[in-house]
Each structure stands twice: as structure tokens, then as C-alpha cells.
């Protein structure tokens, strides 16, 4: 009967907290900065910069979520 008032103490509090999570901000902010990519040149395989850069951002997103997953994986 030591501490009857404590609400269901959990042995080890689980958490999703990790500094790696901050990386997730990169692919959220990057596609929003239109002045960065709203140009026709330089073209790549005929694609204006506006298009190929945004395709590139998809890869940035994949890289980021994969990295965060690997780094925050338990066990």
C-alpha cells in the first residue's frame, strides 16, 4: 500500500521522441518554397526546373522518412 494514488504506473514509459524526427520538417518545408523552384531553366531532359525539382523533392521525402524509420527503430 505504498502509493495507492499514482495512476497505473507503467514500468518503462514508451515514447516516439527522437531528435531524428526533426528531419521530417525538410520534405514538408521544401515543396512550399515556390520561389526556389518556380523557374523554367535549367531544363533536364526537356523538363523545366519547376517539374524536375519537384520530382526530386519526392526522393528527398522518401530518403527522409526511410532514414527516420531506420534511426528510430526499436531493437
Amino acid at each position: 500500500m505504498a502509493e495507492p494514488e499514482t495512476p497505473k504506473a507503467v514500468p518503462v514509459a514508451r515514447s516516439d521522441r527522437s531528435p531524428w524526427n526533426w528531419l521530417l520538417l525538410i520534405p514538408i518545408v521544401l515543396p512550399v518554397l515556390t520561389p526556389l523552384f518556380n523557374h523554367d531553366s535549367p531544363r533536364l531532359w526537356g523538363f523545366p526546373a519547376f517539374y524536375w525539382l519537384q520530382f526530386l523533392f519526392i526522393l528527398v521525402g522518401v530518403a527522409t522518412t526511410s532514414l527516420v524509420y531506420q534511426m528510430t527503430k526499436k531493437r
Binding site: 516516439d16 520534405p27 514538408i28 515543396p31 512550399v32 519526392i58 521525402g61 527516420v68
Partner: peptide, 13 residues
């Protein structure tokens, strides 16, 4: 395209 880039990092957690 930006719409479907932003979704995944935004909803990850």
C-alpha cells in the same frame, strides 16, 4: 505533387 510529398512526413508521427 507537393501535396503528395508533404503528406507522408506530416502524418508519419
Amino acid at each position: 505533387v507537393p501535396y503528395t510529398i508533404v503528406i507522408y512526413p506530416l502524418f508519419f508521427l
